[in-house]
């Protein structure tokens, strides 16, 4: 595994769109070549070298390329976008679309991330040690194919629209979430260890949501059926009140049985 270390110089005045900061783009390139990769600050097309000090060469393939991003990345977007393999570690906060449309590999952000992170994710692992804003692991506007695979783990809180149009994969939020969890969900699993304000599972067709804390306003379309024991997160076997829904939404049948979305509320 080769490591490329980027240190943000903080020379951008507006937001920097660093869509080429991925193991895929860095693979097979020297530090100098990486410095020549394109990025955008508003309508000014720039090169990564203008905005980052770059140390180390990329590995032969994406899978054996590791990228460590240092310095203040709070105003840098699109790190890890569409990556398929390898690893990125961001040591500060970073902005939108981090790990967006990710297919494989691993991204770790040690600070907070803004909105639309992990959007359209298909595989890999995305870890946020701080908080995430809105539309975590959601779908791009209009796309009915939201998160389809992979794991997102946010150690802090998340905002609204977690996992909209989710179809697969897993999202774990250690803290609270706000409105709209798994809206239009068609599969996958969301675990929220804190509280949620409301609209959990609205228009949900299929999928599982576990909430350890309180849901302030439950959707009318969810109906209590039974208590179950389940292991939402490995090694944490707990008892949950099991609700099915959204009874206002369409549901398909499998072997004569209607498949509902599920909310598991910790007892």
């Amino acid at each position: 595994m080769s490591t490329v270390t980027l240190t943000a110089k903080g020379t951008h005045e507006l937001y920097l769109e660093a869509y080429n900061v991925t193991p895929d783009a860095f693979a097979g390139k020297t530090a100098d070549e990486i410095a020549g990769l394109e990025c955008h600050e508003g309508n000014r097309k720039g090169k990564l070298g203008e905005y980052f000090d770059i140390d180390g060469n990329g590995g032969e393939t994406a899978a054996d390329t590791q990228i460590i991003v240092k310095g203040n990345c709070k105003k840098i977007k699109r790190i890890g976008q569409q990556m398929t393999a390898g690893e990125i570690i961001v040591e500060s906060d970073c902005d939108m679309y981090t790990a967006g449309w990710m297919k494989g590999g691993k991204v770790t952000v040690k600070g907070n991330v803004d909105s639309f992170c992990g959007i359209g994710m298909a595989g890999g692992e995305f870890i946020v040690e701080g908080n995430a804003q809105n539309y975590l692991g959601s779908a791009y506007r209009g796309d009915w194919r939201g998160m389809t695979g992979g794991l997102i783990h946010v150690k802090g809180n998340a905002g609204n629209d977690v996992a909209t149009f989710m179809r697969g994969g897993k999202i774990i939020i250690d803290g609270d979430a706000f409105l709209h969890v798994c809206t239009h969900g068609e599969g996958g699993t969301v675990v929220i260890k804190g509280n949620v304000e409301s609209r959990v599972g609205g228009q949900m067709v299929k999928g599982d949501i576990y909430v350890y804390g309180q849901i302030k306003y439950m959707m009318p379309g969810f109906k209590y059926v039974d208590d179950v024991e389940a292991e939402a997160v490995e090694g944490e076997k707990l008892t949950f009140a099991h609700y099915i829904g959204d009874l206002g939404e369409r549901h398909s049948k499998r072997k004569g049985e209607i498949i509902y979305g599920n909310i598991y509320l910790k007892k």
Partner: peptide
């Protein structure tokens, strides 16, 4: 949103 959901429940037989 909740009120819409309730109307939809009527449409879906619930």
């Amino acid at each position: 949103y909740e009120l819409f959901d309730a109307f939809r429940m009527v449409c879906h037989g619930h």
